[in-house]
Simulated assay, not measured.
Amino acid sequence: MKLPPPGSDLHRLMTRFPRAGQVRWIGLRPARDVPMREVDSAQASAGGGLAGDRYRGGSGKRGVTLIQAEHLPAIAALAGHAVVAPATLRRNLLVSGIPVIALKGVRFRVGEALLEGTDSCDPCSRMETALGPGGYNALRGMGGLCARVLEGGLVRVGDAVQWVDA
């Protein structure tokens, strides 16, 4: 999804955020089918992902995954749980205060790293095991965002998440 032309009303609406977001949690998936590892910081590499994550050297479209902290209570409720831990959903960054899906197709900074939202991060069949029967559907529409790393840098819990004007 590309932004509408600068100066248009839609461009103005799509690039206005009430405030910066914030990284609340960072998790790495060292390999397929292993538990997430919670960390306080991670080094993002241009064209890859986060050091220590299984997608660190991939094609880059899914270099980093983000999920909205505000969606966790809704996912928990839909899956029939009191709470859902971020590691259960297997995304790299738990972000609050900024709608991550609004970052699709645009550039944004997370800590020192410059990212570009590439696509929605749809749930996988593992959610049936992680959340129980219907877990896949409980996460649909709230699975977050995939992003490519354009410029590497350190990402820390507490860092700002901000849209960057291209």
Rank of each mutant, 00 (worst) to 15 (best):
M1F: 11
L3P: 04
P4H: 08
P5L: 06
P5I: 03
P5N: 07
D9G: 12
L10K: 09
L10P: 03
R12C: 05
T15V: 01
R16D: 15
P18L: 11
R19K: 12
A20E: 10
G21M: 06
Q22N: 02
V23R: 07
V23P: 09
R24H: 00
G27E: 00
R29I: 13
R29T: 10
A31G: 05
R32I: 14
R32P: 13
R32F: 14
D33V: 06
D33F: 14
M36H: 01
E38W: 09
E38I: 12
V39W: 02
D40I: 01
D40M: 14
S41M: 14
A42Q: 08
S45W: 14
A46R: 09
A46D: 12
G47N: 00
G47A: 07
G48E: 12
G48D: 11
G48L: 08
G52I: 03
G52S: 01
R54F: 00
G57V: 09
S59E: 15
G60F: 01
R62K: 13
R62N: 08
V64D: 00
T65F: 03
I67V: 15
Q68W: 13
Q68K: 11
A69Y: 04
E70G: 09
E70K: 09
L72K: 03
L72W: 01
L72E: 06
P73H: 03
P73I: 10
A74H: 12
I75G: 06
A76E: 09
L78V: 08
A79S: 01
G80M: 02
H81E: 05
V83C: 12
V84G: 01
V84T: 06
A85E: 13
A85H: 02
A85D: 12
P86M: 11
A87R: 05
A87E: 08
L89Q: 03
R90H: 02
R90C: 05
N92M: 01
N92D: 07
L93R: 05
V95C: 04
V95K: 10
V95P: 00
S96R: 03
V100G: 08
V106M: 07
F108K: 10
G111P: 09
E112T: 00
E112S: 11
L114H: 03
L115V: 12
E116H: 11
G117E: 08
G117K: 10
D119F: 13
C121Y: 14
C121P: 12
P123Y: 05
P123T: 05
C124G: 11
C124T: 11
S125L: 15
R126A: 14
T129E: 15
T129V: 11
A130W: 05
G132N: 02
G132H: 00
G132A: 02
P133S: 14
P133Q: 14
G134S: 01
G134D: 00
G134V: 12
G134P: 02
G135T: 06
G135F: 00
Y136S: 07
N137H: 14
A138Y: 09
M142T: 11
G143K: 04
G144K: 12
G144D: 10
C146H: 14
A147Q: 09
A147D: 01
R148F: 03
G152E: 10
G152C: 00
R156G: 08
R156H: 14
G158R: 06
D159T: 10
V161A: 04
Q162I: 13
W163I: 06
V164G: 11
A166V: 12
